[in-house]
Amino acid sequence: MKKVILFSVLLAAMSCGSGNQSNDAVIGGDSSTVDTASSNSVVLPQDAVEGIVKTIPSPIETSVIIKKAGGEYNKAILNPTENSKNYSSSFKKALNLGVYGADLGYINIYEKNKESLYYLQSVKELADGLNIGQFFDFETIKRMAGSSKNADSLLNITTDNFNQINDYLFQKNRSDQSVLILLGGWIEGLNIMCETAIKSKNPKLYEKIGEQKIVIDQLVLVISSFESDANIRELSMGMKEMQKIFEKVEITYTYKESKMEIVDGIPTIVDKSESKVNISESQVLEIAKITKDLRDKIVK
């Protein structure tokens, strides 16, 4: 066995040339997996990335929509918690943190608190593995998960945690991971929606799926910035494929001026504008298939 070298000596060696170096705005620039044949993608500045990330709707909304549309709770479509042990790289960990986050939301909406404990466990594992575990006070969360009365609070807390994580990762120049979490969450949400939609053949759900066109454009934009990483590039390619299919979906938007009312002391906008989605069943199936493929690759 070799001797363990004193940490500070190692670090000191590492730190030569550090000090006043400004931090690279280009994320992924010092990765050792630079591939020379990179695609022609625009690299966005940090702020833009952050802005876009915050725009993406939370998967919770998806779950609520599904439930409202009468979708049945189906545990089987979720990513099993056993898979968490398979994720050793940060790439996988970040993606699946998002995936499990989405699953957690789904479980919460359907108030299956018993399950949520396992998912919380997996979330913790992955968060710890990414050195962001400090944002989850698991003792408290676990306690709350134990009782159904606290379902709402639990949901709010976990959402807040994820938000904080995002902020932190941006702050610490790890925005790529933030993006991955987001992506993972979105893909999982979409997958759940597709599975439920196909099963229930609910047109409302079809519509919702179609609406994701708006979102995916943003996602592709943001993920392209990170294509210097081989793994992310692969993912980005997949997303672009999906984007192509979404291009066939039509969304029409009619604008009408809205009315404002005071409801319960709060100014409330009653929207008169409308959006309509034109999507066929076969398109849904296509989307579902590609989503599933991409998603399976992520959670394997």
Binding site: S18, D30, S32, T33, S90, N131, K172, R174
Partner: peptide, 20 residues
């Protein structure tokens, strides 16, 4: 802070590299 952040990111990348 900057130093540690940079080192962290680099190290994480190297670890990713090793694993993959």
């Amino acid at each position: 802070e900057m130093f540690f952040q940079k080192t962290f990111n680099e190290t994480q990348k190297r670890k990713e590299d090793l694993l993959s």
